[in-house]
């Protein structure tokens, strides 16, 4: 049996969704039988492969790097899953949308009590004007809301997707859960 290729990516999020994924615990071993984790912050691969079956995306699209990454990934993934509220609706990262990225940068890097106030530019991606949920940027096939979605829900959803079914998440998770 060929194992399904699974990838996970971490855009602008707190890694909580990945932690929740790991909370699947011993069932990970069972899962490992049917999947191959081809790309993830949890493994060592540096290059996103060309033909991934399922990619779980944590985090919102907040800077140029997120945007480039998710476009690249979308082209190489059959099923793209927005995992967690940041990916699904912007969530905490999108709080900055009410005041704008510049104001945030100034507040953080130009605070008067800093020894070297300066907004970093070299080697860091520029912020997008607005923090966006993943589906505003590329097509998303499945949404799993929750902050984070429970290990239970993730395990169920991934299982369904691997079985070729659309997971029915009614009454299983919600925004903020």
């Amino acid at each position: 049996m060929t194992r399904a290729k699974l990838a996970t990516v971490w855009l602008d999020g707190c890694s909580g969704c990945h932690m929740s994924f790991l909370d699947i615990d011993e069932r990970l071993l069972a899962l490992a039988e049917s999947i191959e984790l081809v790309y993830s912050p949890l493994v060592d691969n540096k290059v996103f492969p060309d033909d991934v079956d399922v990619t779980l995306v944590e985090g919102s699209v907040s800077n140029q790097d997120d945007l480039d990454k998710i476009r690249h990934i979308r082209q190489r993934t059959r099923l793209l899953v927005s995992l967690g509220d940041c990916a699904v609706m912007g969530n905490v990262p999108a709080l900055r949308n009410t005041i704008g990225g510049d104001a945030v940068l100034r507040r953080v890097y130009l605070a008067p009590d800093l020894t070297n106030p300066a907004i970093p530019t070299a080697g860091v991606p520029s912020l997008l004007p607005e923090v966006l949920p993943v589906h505003r940027v590329v097509k998303v096939d499945v949404f799993i809301p929750g902050c984070p979605p429970s290990a239970e829900v993730i395990f169920y959803a991934v299982g369904e997707l691997l079985a070729g079914r659309q997971p029915d998440l009614t009454d299983k998770t919600r925004f903020g859960a």
């Binding site: 609706m89 905490v92 949920p133 949404f143 809301p145 902050c147 009454d171 925004f175 903020g176």
Partner: peptide, 29 residues
């Protein structure tokens, strides 16, 4: 932002989204 709300878990808006099966927003915030 439900995740950082004092009313998380006791909110009628959150409940409505859940019972109506809203899993993402097509409309821009």
């Amino acid at each position: 932002v439900c995740s950082v709300c004092v009313s998380n878990g006791a909110c009628e808006l959150q409940d409505l989204a859940e019972t109506l099966g809203i899993d993402h927003l097509r409309l821009p915030g």
